[in-house]
């Protein structure tokens, strides 16, 4: 795809590997018709941004989060109960944890559903969809490779930490409750700082744009990390636009609240389309993985202008979503 252009037509691939892995997993369940756009929207991944205010480093998108909680909560909005083992703690699993994870992975695959896992071939999310005890090998697919991984390598990839998540049950979701659940997550992410155990200056939501601008101003931007964040966040916002545009056409069982949701979703979608356009230009300035020259003052100046425009548009989008959230709350209560 051309990096400069928004690619509003891609519906089966996202640069957010977490969303991609969840989507792949869902493809094996009784809800396999759920679109990637809905996965990105209802799990909140289309709306996320997390930026290191000094370096814009490559760890941003998945830093500061309790993965298990965020993925489980997001999947609930789609009608899935999930279980996870492990967390991002930079610590390889003990032999016992590895055994527990293998048992969970194999049991899930036996039921016909792969599991999502972190750092299989590269530090991104992928899925494990097969196993062979006689060879002690797992069939895995992530953003880099579709191949075989030895049992003992699970949780001992490039980073050396274990995380697996699998679907344990599915249930019928109420569309209104699901949307409200998604907006709970999106608005929480937009406004509330994710606490950390260390002092690393990661900022999420609207503050994430300000952190990004601050990093450009200080000239301390990591070239590859910056390009990676531009790629992930710009792609995510394209899904945010598509999700909201799709929402505006949903019938919600002909409920009276439908018209109001439709109007607000359409307005929000326009703002997110604008966010996506500005971010696509950022992506063009700093193509991944070469990354361009983010610390060159002139380029940084252009980037700052684009980020300010993206932030302003996202603020307007978030305002619409806040109104929608209030409407849903009133409707539910």
């Amino acid at each position: 795809m051309s990096q400069r252009q928004c690619d509003f037509n891609s519906t089966t691939y996202t640069q957010t590997s977490a969303g991609q892995a969840l989507y792949r997993m869902i493809g094996y369940t009784d809800k396999k018709d759920i679109s990637l756009t809905d996965v990105m929207g209802y799990t909140s991944w289309a709306f996320r941004i997390n930026i290191h205010a000094r370096t814009v480093n490559i760890a941003g998108p998945y830093a500061s989060l309790s993965w298990g909680d965020v993925f489980r909560q997001g999947m609930m909005n789609l009608g899935f109960t999930c279980k996870s083992i492990g967390e991002p703690n930079l610590t390889p699993p003990t032999p016992r944890q590895l055994q527990e994870a293998l048992l969970f992975v194999q049991s899930s695959i036996d039921t016909g559903i792969p599991v999502m896992a972190w750092d299989l071939f590269v530090p991104e999310f992928g899925i494990i969809y097969g196993y062979d005890d006689s060879q002690q090998l797992l069939n895995c697919k992530d953003t880099a490779e579709d191949g075989l991984l030895p049992y003992h390598k699970l949780g001992r990839g490039r980073i050396g930490e274990l995380f697996v998540l699998g679907v344990t049950d599915t249930f019928e979701v109420d569309e209104i409750a699901a949307l409200r659940g998604a907006l709970d997550m999106v608005l929480d992410h937009a406004f509330n700082h994710l606490p950390r155990h260390d002092e690393e200056p990661y900022r999420n939501g609207l503050a994430g744009y300000e952190a990004w601008i601050q990093a450009f101003r200080s000239g301390s931007v990591e070239v590859v990390g910056n390009a990676y964040n531009a790629l992930v966040v710009s792609d995510a916002r394209e899904y945010a636009y598509r999700f909201l545009a799709g929402l505006s056409e949903k019938s919600f069982n002909e409920l009276p609240v439908t018209q109001e949701i439709s109007r607000l979703a359409l307005a929000a979608a326009e703002h997110y389309r604008e966010v996506a356009r500005h971010l696509a230009e950022i992506r063009t300035l700093f193509p991944f993985p070469q990354g361009g020259t983010p610390n060159d003052p002139e380029t940084a100046g252009m980037a700052i202008t684009l980020l300010e425009q993206a932030l302003a548009a996202e603020e307007r989008g978030i305002q619409q979503l806040q109104v929608m959230h209030r409407v849903l709350e009133q409707y539910i209560s």
Binding site: R24, G27, Y28, D110, G130, N139
Partner: peptide
């Protein structure tokens, strides 16, 4: 290595499947 060997032995004793591969995801 020891843990995995022990685990696989237990799996065999319990008669659990030795291998299973789902279709590779299309996207």
């Amino acid at each position: 290595k020891v843990q995995i060997t022990g685990y696989l032995k237990t799996r065999r004793e319990l008669g659990l499947p030795v291998a299973k591969k789902l279709a590779s995801p299309p996207y």
